[in-house]
Simulated scan of single mutants.
Amino acid sequence: MEPIDLTRRIEPGMPVYPGDPGVSAESSATMQSDGYRVTHLSFTTHVGTHIDAPAHMEPEGSTLDEYDVGDFRFDARLVDLTGERGDGGLDAREPIEPGTLPDGTPDADMLVLRTGWGDHWGDDRYFDHPYLTPGAARHVADLDCAVGLDTINPDPTPTERAGDDEPAGTPAHHELLGAGAFIVENLDLTADLPERFTLRAYPLRVDGDGAPVRAVAERSSRAD
Rank of each mutant, 00 (worst) to 15 (best):
E2D: 15
E2Q: 14
E2G: 06
P3F: 09
P3E: 07
D5Q: 08
R9S: 12
E11Y: 02
G13N: 05
P15G: 09
V16E: 01
Y17K: 03
P21F: 08
P21S: 08
V23K: 05
V23M: 00
A25S: 11
E26T: 14
S28W: 06
M31Q: 08
Q32G: 09
D34M: 11
D34G: 06
D34Y: 11
G35M: 03
R37Q: 13
V38E: 15
L41G: 01
F43Y: 15
H46R: 13
V47C: 11
T49M: 05
H50T: 10
H50P: 07
I51K: 04
D52H: 15
D52I: 01
P54K: 09
A55Y: 08
A55S: 15
H56L: 13
H56D: 13
E66H: 12
D68A: 14
V69C: 00
G70R: 13
D71E: 15
F72R: 06
R77S: 08
R77I: 00
D80M: 06
D80L: 05
G83F: 08
G83Q: 15
G88W: 12
G89T: 09
L90K: 05
L90R: 10
A92L: 14
A92I: 06
A92K: 12
P95V: 10
P95F: 12
T100R: 14
L101N: 06
G104M: 00
T105E: 14
T105Y: 09
L111T: 05
L111S: 01
V112S: 10
W117F: 15
W117S: 11
H120T: 12
H120M: 06
G122M: 06
D123Y: 01
D124L: 10
D124I: 05
D124M: 07
Y126H: 06
F127M: 07
P130L: 12
L132P: 01
T133W: 04
A137P: 02
H139W: 06
H139E: 05
V140Y: 03
V140P: 04
L143V: 09
A146N: 08
G148W: 12
L149D: 02
D150G: 06
D150E: 08
T151A: 03
T151M: 06
I152L: 11
P154V: 14
D155I: 12
P156W: 04
P158W: 14
T159D: 11
T159V: 13
T159G: 13
E160P: 09
G163P: 07
D165E: 15
E166H: 04
P167I: 14
H173A: 00
F182L: 00
V184Y: 00
N186F: 02
N186R: 01
L187W: 02
D188F: 07
T190V: 03
L193V: 03
E195Y: 06
E195T: 14
R196F: 12
F197K: 11
F197Y: 13
T198N: 05
T198M: 07
L199T: 10
L199C: 10
L199K: 07
L199R: 04
A201N: 09
P203Q: 12
L204F: 14
L204N: 08
D207N: 14
R214Y: 10
R214L: 14
R214C: 11
A215N: 00
V216W: 05
V216K: 05
A217S: 03
R219P: 01
A223G: 04
D224I: 05
